[in-house]
Design a binder for these strands. Structure first.
Length: 270
DNA sequence: CCCCATGTTCGACA
DNA sequence: GTGTCGAACATGGG
């Protein structure tokens, strides 16, 4: 699930633990999510600290603890954050549980494409500060987008939108949603997107991020049925704009869905 | 048993 | 340097 807005939703599941002490940490040693930072290190460093801050940036989340400890989480394909009772009994996929007197903060990721990382220092980790500008911030500009499209001139725009170095938080369904709003075929190579279409793409990137956050981040609910979202998962879906059959195929190794008559630009592409 | 999956990384190769 | 492809990771669902 987790793309920009779902990450925002999950990140807030740990709000109940802010300002509270970590009395213990339960881990599943050897789980793949600990491939970067050993689970024992996490237990040692976090136990006894206070969860002080939390923030999200695209698909990344960062939790700050007293004593200059930073825990960052990536949800991968199937990661989830939640809270539970103090005596929460961790089961098979609850790989990391932070214990507090008032409750438990839980990270579960059954496929374990997600990752846990620990950094130390009085300020946020350097890599965190160097993350690319959020797509909803004024620092993400038309010039930036244009430059990236030029650099990836031969790449299908669908694939380019998945690059986290330029489009932090965009995932597979958001990329399809953006191109549907901009009325651009996903196979279109980046080098062809200029002028009016560049403007369409820019506003679609920003509006899909904004709207997804507005709709999903508070409740975790799916977007409404007038988005492409709910029609793109299986063969046989219909475009909410035209009512016509959606097409699906693989681009850059990822399932892609589009509306052939609605997204008819460029006309010579497929 | 088979195939598929909202992610990322890495190696091989053009 | 750019781009593509497949594999790998671990698990469950159809």
């Amino acid at each position: 699930m987790p793309e920009l807005a779902e990450v925002e939703y999950y990140w807030r599941r740990w709000d109940s633990g802010l300002g509270r002490k970590i009395t213990g940490v339960s881990v599943h040693p050897g789980a793949r999510i600990f491939r970067r930072t050993d689970s024992e290190v996490i237990v040692q460093r976090l136990t006894g600290t206070v969860l002080a801050t939390s923030q999200a940036h695209g698909k990344q989340m960062l939790f700050g603890f007293s004593g200059g400890i930073w825990l960052s989480l990536h949800l991968g394909m199937t990661g989830e954050l939640s809270s539970g009772p103090r005596n929460f009994q961790d089961r098979k996929h609850h790989h990391l549980v932070l214990r507090q007197s008032a409750g438990s903060l839980i990270f579960a990721d059954y496929r374990q494409f997600g990752e846990v990382r620990l950094d130390e220092g009085s300020d946020t980790p350097v890599w965190w500060r160097e993350l690319p500008p959020l797509l909803t911030s004024p620092d993400f500009t038309r010039e930036m987008l244009a430059a990236y499209l030029t650099r990836r001139a031969k790449t299908p725009v669908k694939s380019a939108l998945l690059h986290q170095e330029r489009f932090p938080g965009i995932g597979n369904w958001m990329a399809d949603e953006i191109l549907w709003r901009a009325r651009i075929r996903p196979q279109c190579v980046c080098g062809r997107i200029k002028g009016r279409k560049l403007s369409d793409l820019l506003s679609a990137v920003i509006s899909v991020c904004r709207d997804a956050l507005a709709v999903i981040a508070d409740t975790g609910e799916d977007p409404p049925s007038d988005w492409l979202f709910s029609h793109r998962w299986a063969d046989g879906g219909h475009c909410p704009k035209t009512g016509k059959r959606l097409l699906r195929s693989t681009i850059g190794g990822r399932m892609t869905c589009w509306s052939p008559t609605w997204q008819r630009w460029p006309r010579d592409v497929l």
